[in-house]
C-alpha cells in the first residue's frame, strides 16, 4: 500500500509547492494584485523582499546572480525613464532641457520599477512551482473540456514533430526531401512532406477516435480527474490564507493602503494600529518561506533527536 500512496505524490521543488495548486495559485494572485495595483512603497518593499527570498530558496545562488545583474539594471532604467517623460506633479525639483523634473514622477518611477522587478521575480517562482499539469488542473476545473484538449495537444505536438522528422528522412533516401534539387523542387518536396504528414495524421486519428469511443468518450457527465487532493494540511493553509486575505481586504476598505502620487504624493504610512494590516501582508507574502522553514526544522529535529 505504501507504493500506491507514494505514487500520487510527485517530486516537488520545495515544501510549499507540494501543497494543493489552489493554495499556490491564490498566493500568487494576492501578491501580484497587491504589488501591481497599489504601488504602495511599504507593501512593495514587503512583497519584493519575500519573493526575492523565495526565489533564492527555489533557485539557489543562480537566482541571486540573476536578480542582481539582470533585474537591477532594468529597474534602474525604468525608474529613470519615468521622470524624463512624465512631467506631472506639483513639486518641481529642477529643469532638464527646459522640461520640469518633479519629485512625484521620480517617486512614481521608483515604485513602478520596484513593482516591475517584483512581478518578474514572482513569475519566475510561479513558473517553477505551478507546472503545466497544475495549471491544467486549475483551468480544467473551470472548463473541463479545455483540460482534455490541452492534454491532447501536449500529446500530439511532439508526436507530429517526431513523425515529420521520420518522413523527411524516408524521403531523403529516395532523394525527394526538402534539401534536394532546385528551389522549386525543394519547396514542392517540402509541401509534399507536410501533405504526407496530414494524410498520416488523418489515417491514424481514426484509430485514436476508436480508442476514445471504445473507452466511453462522448457519454454524458464526463468528469475531470486530477492527481491533486485536499489533505488536512492543505485545508489549514487555505484557512490561514483566507484569514490573512480577510484582514487585507479590511485594511483596503479602511483606506490603510492608500497611495497617490499625482498631483501630490499622499501615502498612508503604517502607524499605530494600522501596522497590524501591514503585518498581515508581510505574513501572507512570507507564507512559502515560513512553510519551508518549518519543514526544515521538523526534519532537522527528526534527524537529531536531542
Amino acid at each position: 500500500m505504501w507504493a500506491v500512496t507514494g505514487m500520487f505524490q510527485k517530486n516537488s521543488p520545495d515544501a510549499f509547492s507540494s501543497y494543493h495548486p489552489v493554495i499556490l495559485f491564490l498566493y500568487f494572485c494576492v501578491v501580484l494584485f497587491f504589488t501591481m495595483f497599489f504601488l504602495h512603497p511599504v507593501l512593495l518593499a514587503i512583497s519584493f523582499c519575500s519573493v526575492f527570498l523565495y526565489s533564492v530558496q527555489l533557485n539557489g545562488r543562480k537566482a541571486i546572480r540573476f536578480n542582481i545583474f539582470c533585474m537591477l539594471p532594468v529597474t534602474v532604467i525604468v525608474s529613470l525613464i519615468n521622470p524624463l517623460f512624465s512631467h506631472a506633479g506639483v513639486t518641481i525639483l529642477f529643469y532638464l532641457n527646459e522640461n520640469p523634473v518633479t519629485l512625484e514622477s521620480i517617486a512614481f518611477g521608483i515604485v513602478s520599477g520596484g513593482a516591475f522587478i517584483t512581478v518578474i521575480i514572482a513569475f519566475s517562482c510561479f513558473n517553477k512551482i505551478l507546472t503545466s499539469d497544475k495549471l491544467m488542473y486549475l483551468f480544467g476545473r473551470l472548463i473541463p473540456v479545455l483540460s482534455l484538449m490541452f492534454s491532447m495537444t501536449l500529446r500530439f505536438v511532439p508526436r507530429y514533430k517526431a513523425q515529420i522528422k521520420k518522413i523527411a528522412n524516408a524521403q531523403l533516401c529516395i532523394g525527394m526531401d526538402a534539401s534536394h534539387g532546385n528551389l522549386l523542387q525543394r519547396v514542392k518536396n517540402g509541401i509534399q512532406i507536410l501533405s504526407i504528414l496530414i494524410t498520416w495524421a488523418l489515417e491514424n486519428a481514426i484509430e485514436t477516435a476508436d480508442s476514445m469511443k471504445a473507452r466511453g468518450f462522448g457519454l454524458k457527465g464526463r468528469t475531470s480527474f486530477s492527481v491533486f487532493s485536499w489533505k488536512r494540511r492543505d485545508k489549514t493553509l487555505l484557512a490561514t490564507e483566507a484569514a490573512l486575505l480577510f484582514a487585507l481586504l479590511l485594511g483596503l476598505g479602511l483606506g490603510k493602503f492608500e497611495s497617490v502620487y499625482f498631483p501630490a504624493i499622499r501615502i498612508a504610512w503604517p502607524e499605530g494600529k494600522s501596522a497590524a494590516f501591514y503585518l498581515a501582508y508581510a505574513l501572507f507574502c512570507l507564507l512559502p518561506i515560513i512553510v519551508n522553514r518549518r519543514e526544515n526544522i521538523v526534519w532537522n529535529k527528526l534527524k537529531s533527536p536531542d
Binding site: 491532447m152 500529446r155 491514424n204 484509430e207 485514436t208 480508442s211 476514445m212
Partner: peptide, 9 residues
C-alpha cells in the same frame, strides 16, 4: 498501434 491509442500526454 500502441501510439495511436494513447489520447493524453
Amino acid at each position: 498501434n500502441p501510439d495511436n491509442q494513447i489520447v493524453t500526454d
